[in-house]
Simulated assay, not measured.
Amino acid sequence: MPAPNLDTVMSAVDQLLSGAMDEEQMPAAAETLRQLFNGSKACFASVGPNPEDWVAYATNVDEALQARCFGDLAQDFVEMGFALRNIPLGQVYHDHEVYGRERLHSSRIWQEWMQPQDMHGGMACRLAENGEAFWFFDVQRGRHQEGFDREDVALLGKLYPVLRRIAEVRRHLGRVAIQRDEARGALDSLAMGIVIVDQDLRIIYANEGADEILAEPDGALSLRQGRVFARQPSDHRQFRQLVEAAAHGSRDPLGQQRSSLILRGDDRAHSLSACVMPAALSLAPAGSHSKVMIALRRLEMATDIVACSRQLFDLTETEAKFASALASGLSLTEAAAAQRVRISTARTHLARIFQKTDTRQQSQLVSLLRSADLPLRSR
């Protein structure tokens, strides 16, 4: 095969780097290499003893045959892969040199998968290991094409460092994707809304609970042009102040590292307890668009706060009932009227509750009581 010029090789490398960062570009990267080697088929793949080890980015994909690769032929591929374990990373090999031409052509993989796809002469190299699993790149020539020569082998050898790096990046990003999906699943299972925003209240992530809260037409929070807004103007001013303080890593206006407040809808049935905190510790300077996490809890989702608060904070029956009234969204005056006590008596109860719960403001107390029990959503 005529040696490709430098521009063609660099174009292939650029395509590979794009595929490293974007999985959707990987088939295009494989296609670029197929053309670079004038092959009938090319494939980046990971193979190992466990199903989670299997990944493939191939050209000229036959969907039915691809399904068999991960189905009834999977064990045959695993056994074939074991024959490659002793080949050093980066060493280019030909299929028939590893398996023997007769043994290869008598295998199910050849007869039922390779031959139907015109894969009559393969050249490959192992790229990276991950326990018993490993990544490799394979390119094939068709029945009526010439076999790979020394120049082809030399070119694949020179591309090995790039191919190895691509495999390592894809493996790392794949692991990150799994961790991300597991984390999102855990957040979705909580019976509370979790929202991550930037300092301008632009939404970055919301779990299922938050999506439901933000979609409520009369809710305490809404979404406008990608930003989170509190329905009541007075609530929104305080809400924005707490988000900005958390985004800059500074203390909030009330002197706490983690702040809570009550957000009210058009009626009490849609009031929320909101806890605002930095999404992650950061050494970034002020004004650096840090991320903020907001935990949202519907006030009507209370469990038996009276029983919980007595058990957890050693409140008296009277104190627990007063705390429950506050957690339901009542003001101090309204709670006093509901308990049929004077406002001065209510303040005395509140001071004792603050002392026992180690809180200093009503919004903190309510958030603490609301977070005493975190039930899971029914799925």
Rank of each mutant, 00 (worst) to 15 (best):
residue 258 R to I: 15
residue 294 I to Y: 00
residue 260 S to D: 08
residue 256 Q to K: 13
residue 250 S to H: 09
residue 251 R to D: 12
residue 188 D to P: 01
residue 239 F to N: 00
residue 228 V to T: 06
residue 233 P to Q: 09
residue 264 R to H: 14
residue 196 I to T: 13
residue 232 Q to T: 06
residue 245 A to L: 04
residue 236 H to W: 05
residue 276 V to N: 00
residue 273 S to T: 09
residue 256 Q to P: 01
residue 217 P to Y: 07
residue 264 R to E: 13
residue 241 Q to W: 05
residue 290 S to Q: 15
residue 230 A to P: 02
residue 186 A to E: 03
residue 210 A to H: 02
residue 230 A to R: 03
residue 196 I to R: 01
residue 281 L to T: 11
residue 287 G to R: 07
residue 235 D to A: 05
residue 222 S to G: 12
residue 271 S to L: 03
residue 244 E to F: 04
residue 266 D to G: 08
residue 239 F to A: 03
residue 230 A to S: 12
residue 254 L to K: 08
residue 252 D to Q: 09
residue 214 L to R: 05
residue 248 H to Y: 07
residue 225 Q to V: 06
residue 219 G to Y: 00
residue 246 A to D: 01
residue 275 C to Y: 02
residue 254 L to S: 09
residue 285 P to A: 08
residue 198 D to K: 07
residue 208 E to R: 12
residue 259 S to I: 04
residue 255 G to P: 05
residue 248 H to Q: 14
residue 277 M to W: 02
residue 277 M to G: 05
residue 243 V to M: 04
residue 252 D to K: 02
residue 201 L to H: 05
residue 262 I to R: 07
residue 197 V to S: 00
residue 186 A to L: 14
residue 208 E to C: 07
residue 292 V to D: 01
residue 235 D to K: 05
residue 270 H to F: 07
residue 212 E to K: 14
residue 280 A to R: 15
residue 219 G to W: 00
residue 284 A to Y: 05
residue 199 Q to P: 06
residue 204 I to T: 14
residue 254 L to M: 12
residue 191 A to E: 04
residue 275 C to A: 12
residue 218 D to M: 10
residue 234 S to P: 02
residue 191 A to M: 08
residue 240 R to H: 12
residue 239 F to V: 07
residue 262 I to T: 10
residue 265 G to R: 00
residue 289 H to P: 02
residue 226 G to A: 09
residue 272 L to W: 02
residue 268 R to Y: 09
residue 289 H to A: 14
residue 208 E to H: 11
residue 208 E to G: 06
residue 292 V to W: 00
residue 212 E to D: 15
residue 210 A to P: 02
residue 219 G to F: 00
residue 206 A to M: 09
residue 214 L to N: 04
residue 274 A to I: 04
residue 282 S to C: 11
residue 183 A to N: 11
residue 205 Y to T: 10
residue 248 H to C: 11
residue 291 K to N: 12
residue 266 D to M: 10
residue 253 P to T: 05
residue 273 S to R: 01
residue 204 I to S: 05
residue 270 H to N: 10
residue 267 D to Y: 06
residue 239 F to K: 03
residue 183 A to T: 13
residue 283 L to E: 14
residue 251 R to V: 15
residue 197 V to M: 00
residue 266 D to K: 10
residue 231 R to A: 11
residue 252 D to H: 10
residue 194 I to K: 00
residue 274 A to M: 06
residue 293 M to H: 07
